[in-house]
Design a protein around this nucleic acid. Structure first.
Lengths: 208, 208
DNA sequence: GTGTTTCGAAACTTAAGCGTATCGAATACG
DNA sequence: CGTATTCGATACGCTTAAGTTTCGAAACAC
């Protein structure tokens, strides 16, 4: 921190407390180190504040001055993974399903994003606050988007009438997730048409 | 351990070493406590030998006399969950798919069995030996069985020609797993025809 | 300049949990 | 009976990490 990279003047409203300002660079380094380590170790208990401080090149004091414990830091760190929500889509339901599937595949291939789902699925009992936040920020918007898309397909006749929406949603998301889990991440990055193939498979079904 | 419940005479071949025999009841209590705690805490690092000993009503000595470390104990404990392999099935591919789906649903609703999949999916890097054992003992047989069933369906014409078997497998397993994850365990035990509904949904596909 | 606050680094206290060792009591065999 | 081994309980040394405190240096406002 040799140069002047401290937090900006903070506007006219807050009269800027006296003393040395907090380093914005240190804050970013802490968040980045946290996300890197979470992406590697998958599991909150394996994540140590000391490892974060070492990786970020920062003293533990600098961390504890900003966050009072590990969970608070994680909440803020995961919030920066703003997974920009699957973007709005276009004309045909199939095309939109492919767009969503592609987003899921891309996220599932990124270690940082993948760990979010791992935490949401496995740490519910030990970190309910964190999991609830993930659920509201990431899972729920996607669930709602897919539900709306499936319902739209039913009304437009592009999808089967009487479709069981919860099952269909588990169908789409579960297939993508499980495929990545079993076939590995390489498979995703390799074949660029994987999303299309999966969606077409789901649309056609198993029967002839 | 007030009564005589020690290990039986052990046959004529081994001449029975002198001294007090090891308690079979203690061994069972240790395994049970291990599975209970794993099912609750999901995550091997949260599992402590001391907690197992306390839950089993056993001294740590009794554990370390049988297993040299946590992982060895887990390997043996998980091996007792012999999830008796999906039983052989019958005439139509649909019926057999329903049988498998029902087994997966039942397993996914039991905390002890559910944790096996959690470990297999999340602890691969930290406990490769354990995960490899789970993979060979549980995952691989099921994968092979489903693959065979899907292939059979293609040859008999009950399933679509040119079916992508890996995607179809992720389709079946992923749908079941994700449905349980999102809708909760209660949903499984409640509706007894869930397996049929999921399988029929997969067969029919999303399209009209 | 003085005063205030943050910086990174290090030492510190506290708490878990591992794996070992020791203890008296219990349970087998001969 | 004597011997051998296991039993549960407890204490021990060791490691890891949490969270706190102290330190001199640095960065700001005045």
């Amino acid at each position: 921190m040799t140069t002047t990279d401290e937090i900006q003047a903070a506007g006219a409203r807050t009269p800027r407390p006296a003393g040395r300002p907090r380093s914005a660079r240190a804050e970013k380094a802490i968040i980045d180190a946290t996300l890197d380590l979470v992406g590697e170790s998958v599991g909150i208990s394996e994540l140590s504040i000391e490892a974060i401080a070492a990786r970020a090149g920062v003293g533990k004091t600098t961390i504890y001055r900003r966050w009072s414990n590990k969970e608070d830091l994680l909440v803020d760190a995961l919030a920066t993974l703003k997974t920009p929500l699957p973007p709005v889509a276009g004309v045909s339901v199939r095309e939109d399903l492919v767009v969503y599937a592609r987003v899921f595949l891309r996220d599932a291939c990124d270690a940082r994003n993948r760990c979010v789902m791992n935490i949401a699925m496995n740490e519910a009992e030990r970190h309910p606050r964190l999991v609830e936040r993930i659920r509201q920020a990431t899972i729920e918007p996607r669930r709602a988007a897919i539900t709306a898309l499936l319902r739209r397909g039913v009304t437009t006749g592009e999808l089967r009438a009487g479709l069981d929406v919860p099952i269909a949603m588990a169908n789409l998301v579960g297939t993508v997730m499980w495929y990545i889990r079993t076939e590995g991440v390489d498979e995703c990055t390799a074949s660029s048409d994987l999303a299309e193939r999966i969606v077409d498979h789901l649309l056609a079904g198993l029967a002839p």
